[in-house]
Simulated assay, not measured.
Amino acid sequence: MLKQQAVLHDSFGRRHDYIRISVTDKCNLRCVYCMPEEGLPFFPDERVLSCAEIIQMVKNFARMGIKKVRLTGGEPLMRSDIIEIIKGISAITEIDDISMTTNGLALPKMAKRLYQAGLNRLNISLDTFDKKRYKEITRGGNLDRLLKGIDTASQLPFKKIKINTVIINGQNDHEIADFLKYTFDHDVNLRFIEFMPIQQDERWKKQYRGLDAIFNACQTNHWIYEPIRLDGNGPSENYKIGGAKGSFGLIHPISCNFCESCNRLRITADGYIKSCLYWDDEENIRAAIFDFDSFREKIQHALAIKPKNHEMALLNQEQVKNKKPTWRHMSQIGG
Rank of each mutant, 00 (worst) to 15 (best):
K26Y: 00
C27S: 13
C31L: 06
C31G: 03
V32D: 03
Y33R: 06
M35Y: 05
P36V: 04
L40W: 00
L40N: 00
F42Y: 13
F43E: 11
F43R: 13
P44M: 05
E46K: 14
E46G: 01
R47M: 11
V48D: 00
L49I: 12
L49F: 04
A52G: 01
A52N: 14
Q56M: 13
Q56V: 14
M57S: 10
V58T: 14
K59L: 07
A62F: 04
M64S: 09
K67F: 02
K67I: 01
R70Y: 03
R70N: 11
R70F: 09
G74C: 05
G74Y: 02
P76L: 04
L77S: 12
M78F: 05
M78E: 11
R79Y: 04
S80M: 11
D81Q: 03
I83W: 02
I83Q: 06
S90T: 05
A91N: 15
T93N: 14
T93H: 14
E94D: 15
E94Y: 04
I98E: 06
N103R: 07
N103A: 06
A106D: 12
A106N: 11
M110E: 14
M110F: 06
A111V: 04
K112M: 10
R113Q: 15
Q116E: 15
Q116T: 13
L119S: 08
R121D: 07
R121I: 00
I124V: 15
D127E: 12
